[in-house]
């Protein structure tokens, strides 16, 4: 297998194909400044710079959403204040503080 057939292994998953001119939105993911576009879902926004939204509770793998239509519940993540949100059906907003792992003391 030649190396050039292998896609690059950069951190994010999202490849923007259209509608790239929307205004920018800033948010924080695990304490790191990130950027997305207005109208992105939280899932799109997170997967622009990260490969997953959380760790699976039952297996070794991470999770990055699956259905994008609110049916599988694979894409829940946390916000710094301890709240949880379903990434595929929530739009990103300026100043959101998101976490891919529960905050300290969360259960």
């Amino acid at each position: 297998m030649t190396a050039d057939l292998q896609p690059s292994r950069q951190a994010g998953r999202i490849v923007r194909l259209a509608e790239k001119g929307r205004p920018q939105v800033r948010f924080r993911l695990d304490g790191v400044d990130c950027q997305a576009l207005s109208g992105d879902t939280v899932l799109t926004a997170v997967l622009v710079s990260a490969p997953a939204v959380r760790q699976s509770e039952f297996g070794p793998e991470k999770r990055a959403g699956f259905c994008l239509m609110g049916a599988c519940q694979d894409c829940w993540l946390w916000s710094e204040d301890g709240g949880r949100l379903r990434a595929c059906s929530t739009l990103i907003a300026d100043g959101m503080q998101l976490r891919t792992a529960p905050p300290e003391g969360w259960q």
Partner: peptide
């Protein structure tokens, strides 16, 4: 992803 976000989920 394509319709509602204009993105592909991989390269």
């Amino acid at each position: 992803a394509l319709k509602a976000q204009g993105v592909a989920l991989g390269e």
